[in-house]
C-alpha cells in the first residue's frame, strides 16, 4: 500500500499543522538550482536540538514550505541571521512569550521574486512572503526541535509563528530604506531578522502633523502590557506609506522621525509602578538609563538605545495605519546581513 506523503508529514511531531509539499529528489534538485551554493555547506546548527542547517537541509525545508527555487537565497540568508550568536535563537524557541523571528528584506532581489512590501504584505496572499517565513519555522520545528509543549513553551503561540516575512515598501517610502539607514548600499540585497511579538495595529486617519500622529504610535510602543516599557528589547514600528508621508511632508527625514518616536515613547514612573511587571528597584537597576525612583512624574522611555527601534515603511499606501511589534528581551538581538542572490 503506497504511503500518502501528505499524511506522512502530518504525522510528524514537527508538523506546523499545515500540509507540506513532499520533498523529492527532483524538487530538491530544482530548489538547489535557485542558489549557487555547495549543498554540503553548513550555515549553522539549529538550537536546541542542534541538527545542522546545511544548504541541502535548508533547500528541503524550502521545498516543504512551498518555496520557489528563486526564494532559496533569501531563506539561506534569513537562516544565517537567526543562527548568529547575537540572535540567540534558543530564546525564541523556548520562550514563554509568543515571539518569532520577523524577517525583513531590502534590496532589488525582493522585487525580482515578488516578495510583497505593499498592500496586504503580512498576508495572506503572497507566495514568497508566506513560504520564506514558513521555511524558517519548519526548520525551527524540525532541525531545532522547537516542539510546542516539549521545548517550545510559548503559552499561546500565534499566527506570526507560522510565517512572518515582508519586503520593505521601498517604492512608496519617502525615505532611504531601513537597510540604508543601517549602513548598507541601496542596491545591496539585505535580510534582517528581528525577535518580535506579533503586530498591533495603530489606526490614525485624523492626525495630519507629526506631533499628533506620534501620540498614538508612541502610546502603543510604550503599552504597559508590551515587552518594552519595563525592560529593554528590540521593537518594530512599521509605518504605512501614508503615515510616513505625514512625517515626510513636514520635512522630517527617516532619522528625524526615528528620533521623535524614541523621544515620545515612554510612560511616567507613577503609571508603570501601579501595576504590570514592576519589579521595584531591582528591575529599574537593569535599565540602561537612570530614573529618579522617588519622582512619580519621571519619564521612563520604552526605547533605551535608539538602535533598538527598527523603523520600517510597508503596507498599502491607502491605509492610515501603522504597526507596532513589541520585543522580548535584550538576550536576543536583531541581525542584518547581505545575502547572495
Amino acid at each position: 500500500m503506497a504511503v500518502d506523503p501528505v499524511e506522512f508529514f502530518f504525522g510528524k511531531e514537527w508538523s506546523d499543522g499545515l500540509p507540506v509539499v513532499p520533498p523529492t529528489e527532483e524538487r530538491l534538485a530544482a530548489m538547489l538550482d535557485g542558489a549557487r551554493r555547495d549543498p554540503d555547506e553548513v550555515i549553522g546548527h539549529v538550537p536546541p536540538l542542534m541538527a545542522p542547517a546545511t544548504v541541502r537541509a535548508i533547500a528541503l525545508h524550502a521545498v516543504m514550505a512551498g518555496c520557489r527555487p528563486d526564494y532559496l537565497p533569501v531563506v539561506i540568508g534569513a537562516m544565517a541571521c537567526v543562527l548568529e550568536e547575537r540572535f540567540n535563537l534558543v530564546l525564541l524557541q523556548a520562550t514563554t512569550s509568543a515571539g518569532a523571528p520577523f524577517v525583513l528584506v531590502n534590496g532589488p532581489y525582493a522585487r525580482t521574486i515578488g516578495l510583497c512590501g505593499g498592500m496586504g504584505c503580512l498576508g495572506p496572499g503572497f507566495r514568497a512572503n508566506a513560504t520564506i517565513g514558513r521555511a524558517l519555522r519548519l526548520m525551527m520545528l524540525n532541525l531545532g526541535g522547537g516542539i510546542p509543549g516539549v521545548t517550545a513553551l510559548s503559552g499561546f503561540g500565534g499566527p506570526w509563528r507560522y510565517t512572518y516575512c515582508i519586503a520593505e515598501n521601498e517604492d512608496e517610502s519617502p525615505w532611504p530604506s531601513y537597510a540604508q539607514a543601517r549602513g548598507f548600499g541601496p542596491m545591496e540585497n539585505v535580510v534582517t531578522a528581528i525577535p518580535l511579538e506579533g503586530p498591533v495595529l495603530v489606526w490614525d486617519d485624523a492626525s495630519e502633523e507629526p506631533g499628533r500622529l506620534a501620540v498614538a504610535i508612541a502610546d502603543m510602543m510604550s503599552a504597559l502590557g508590551g515587552g518594552n516599557i519595563y525592560r529593554q528589547a528590540d521593537m518594530g514600528v512599521v509605518l504605512s506609506p501614508q503615515h510616513a508621508q505625514v512625517f515626510a511632508r513636514a520635512g522630517m527625514s527617516r532619522d528625524d522621525t526615528h528620533r521623535l518616536l524614541v523621544e515620545r515613547a515612554g510612560r511616567r514612573l507613577g503609571e508603570i509602578r501601579s501595576g504590570g511587571i514592576w519589579r521595584g528597584e531591582a528591575g529599574a537597576a537593569r535599565w540602561p538609563f537612570k530614573v529618579a525612583l522617588d519622582d512619580e512624574n519621571a519619564f521612563v522611555p520604552a526605547i533605551g538605545d535608539p538602535d533598538d527601534l527598527h523603523l520600517v515603511v510597508a503596507g498599502g499606501s491607502g491605509s492610515p495605519a501603522s504597526l507596532v511589534m513589541h520585543g522580548i528581551t535584550v538576550a536576543s538581538r536583531a541581525v542584518s546581513r547581505t545575502y547572495d542572490a
Partner: peptide, 17 residues
C-alpha cells in the same frame, strides 16, 4: 491516484540525542 513512497524524509532524529 496516490503517490508512491519515493519522497524524502528530512526529519531530524529527535531521539538520537
Amino acid at each position: 491516484m496516490s503517490e508512491s513512497a519515493d519522497f524524502m524524509d528530512p526529519s531530524a532524529d529527535h531521539g538520537a540525542h
